[in-house]
Amino acid sequence: MSEVQGLLRSDGFVAVRQLPLRGMITVKGDLSATALKNVATGLSGVDFPGPRECNCVGDNGIAWMAPDEILLMVTHATIPDAMAKVAATLQGQHYLAADVSDARTIFELEGAGVREVIAKLAPVDLAPDVFPPSAFRRTRLGQVPAAFWLKDNQTAELICFRSVTQYVFDILTHAARANTQVSYF
């Protein structure tokens, strides 16, 4: 699926960039099951995350969404293969796998004030000792659901529903516009 208008981007004290579509599979099931862990780590090439964590390298990663749900991220082109592999591995088990790639938008935020931009919009404590890199939070951003994690202390990735892409981009851009740092963290 192509993005007709191109990818959104803005530069304030934190840069907000929409990333190209990423393959995302919601997997629900028993997270302690070996088969589920194996297929998730096998497809993404990262360690299985603990509660409220996300391990992500490039386009590949696993995010812990709930005690019975993960979000498996792969490159967009490999989605059919990944879905087939999940189905083959978990056959006969109680699970659900849904390709949600095209329902989502992913943003990258980059800049020293990245914690501040998110903290302006989400009811989450982003203090470095409370929310270290690899911590993952599913919450709301302004008025819509979103989830984010820090790749490092300067970079965050944030996912939201595709239908609210423009809204999320607008509030992030507004929160990140130049000379509005609070310098709290």
Partner: peptide
Amino acid sequence: PYCGVDAEETEL
């Protein structure tokens, strides 16, 4: 008690 987050009212 499920995800361990201290969530404030607007998230609930």
